[in-house]
Simulated assay, not measured.
Amino acid sequence: MRIHLDPTAPGPIFARLADALRAAIVDGRIGFGERLPPSRDLAEGLDVNVHTVLRAYRVLRDEGFIELHPGRGATVAKRLGHHTALAGAIHDLVDEARLNGVDEVALLALVREAWR
């Protein structure tokens, strides 16, 4: 599993990490039952504080994406293999927005509005 965090992106690092992991789960790069890297290893690999990783893991736990097992690590708790079409649609949406000059903030506002 390869996770990349854009150092220039806005927002707290833990939230960006949670977003990256959530996206990897939704698009199938990390599958149901798969173990996430130990927090220390991921923190070292991303050059962030271990508490940042733990906070991102707690966010994903609270959302039901992962289960945390003290001393045994974190595993993916949701079966999302059937959402590969959703992942494709999301990528298509982002590509279309970029082609039409719609920035990230505007696109997210449009998605929020459509969600309501």
Rank of each mutant, 00 (worst) to 15 (best):
E113M: 11
A56G: 06
H4R: 14
L99N: 11
I25S: 01
R116P: 04
T8S: 13
V26F: 07
E104P: 03
R61H: 15
V94Y: 02
H82Q: 13
A97M: 01
R2E: 15
G45A: 15
E34L: 04
L46I: 08
R35S: 07
L110M: 14
H51W: 07
A56I: 02
E96L: 14
R40F: 09
G11V: 07
E96W: 15
P70R: 08
E63A: 08
D92F: 11
E63L: 13
E67G: 07
A24R: 11
H69Y: 10
G101A: 13
D62F: 03
D6C: 08
E44H: 14
R35I: 01
G101Q: 14
L108I: 04
E44W: 13
A85T: 14
V105K: 08
I13H: 05
G28R: 05
L68A: 11
L108N: 06
V53E: 04
P12Q: 02
A56K: 01
A24C: 13
L42D: 01
D92G: 12
L54D: 15
K78C: 10
V53K: 02
L99K: 12
M1N: 07
L107E: 00
L99T: 10
R55M: 05
H51D: 13
D27W: 15
R61D: 09
R116K: 08
V48R: 13
H91E: 14
A24I: 11
D103A: 04
L36R: 00
G81N: 08
S39K: 06
E104Q: 12
A43K: 08
A56S: 10
F65L: 08
G11Y: 04
R112A: 01
G71F: 05
H83F: 14
V50W: 06
V59R: 07
D62L: 05
R55Y: 03
A43G: 15
G28S: 14
E113G: 07
